[in-house]
Nucleic acid binder design. Structure first.
Lengths: 172, 172
DNA sequence: CACCACTTCTGCGAAATCCGCAAGGTTCGA
DNA sequence: TCGAACCTTGCGGATTTCGCAGAAGTGGTG
């Protein structure tokens, strides 16, 4: 009647939190389905989720709590920064000599930096910066990032228009 | 006792949804405070938010509903893609000849593309791609993106390690 | 100033949800 | 066989959500 995701809960998809090789918990199909529900609506009631994934309300509650505790997922409000008063954003590509990770850590510590990723290619690090205005952006890039010892060069891409921003992993 | 954000709701911060010049709604201090609460916990009850921002439960509910309807904010579960089974991610810089926006729209239509932004600098568009494995990633970049008419060239930055990912705009 | 249209906030029941808890079943692995 | 982990069912009580009616403030107009 109502689309069940799981028919039989047989051996190959039962464990919801075993540790895999790299230390991150492995997710089974049911937890994935729960996350999917919460990606559509973070406030969806547990009973509705349970009906959708084929679990009781209590079980969903336990799983969600565990997923949150483990840090696998978080339920948050996300906004378009422009609407909230941050008018200048940029992606900054950084080239590093020496220890890349320590530079990445330094960037991570800056509150204006929303996103830091170590990458392969012509940049060692990509960092997204969210600022209130041009002065602020300039300050962060030139005075703070370029000033870090070990930063060889940077290249900035100022955002003109945000076209897409999704959080629908697994919903494909 | 409990920190009130707003003391007097006087003229200069009353409107919660007026249209500003560029068409995006302007937010007042109260809505900002509500968003802030929901960035800490997307499931926080309306009454608790109301207490924190100095509004009744019903008022908070109405404002949240409006913010959601307007698309100013969404309440969702966010995860680390790696944990959910997407092992390859990349940022792709795209150079375009002709209409940049139509290319951006095409990218937006691809489910593997999580993030699309039009930028100034040596790339016209930056797009973040989330894939299950190398084959998938290769396919998206070479067969689908490069195949778009108007795409002059692309450059890929494969993610090695995600260091930071925040959703705390306004919480500074 | 009076009046109207509009929006927002408040207050209040009724319904739904959340939450903790307990008892019992199943499966898996030590 | 035992323990651990997980799920289910069921249950109340506390909390939250939800819809609605009424009050209050704003802006525009004559």
């Amino acid at each position: 009647m109502h689309s069940e995701v799981v028919a039989s809960r047989s051996a190959d998809q039962r464990d919801s939190s075993r540790e895999s090789r790299n230390g991150t918990p492995t997710l089974d199909a049911v937890s994935l389905a729960i996350i999917q529900q919460l990606q559509e609506d973070g406030r969806r009631p547990y009973a509705a989720i349970g009906k959708a994934v084929g679990l009781s309300e209590a079980a969903v509650r336990q799983r969600v709590q565990k997923l949150l505790d483990q840090g696998v997922m978080q339920i948050v409000a996300v906004t378009d920064p422009l609407t909230v008063g941050f008018r200048r954003q940029a992606m900054v590509g950084v080239n590093v000599e020496g220890d890349v990770e320590s530079i990445a850590d330094a960037l991570t510590g800056m509150s204006e930096v929303e996103y830091v990723v170590m990458a392969a290619g012509s940049f060692d690090i990509l960092a997204e910066i969210v600022c209130e205005d041009d002065d602020h952006l300039l300050d962060v890039i030139n005075k703070r990032i370029r000033a870090l010892p070990g930063v060889r060069s940077t290249e900035s891409f100022v955002y003109l228009k945000l076209k897409k921003q999704t959080y629908m992993w697994g919903t494909r």
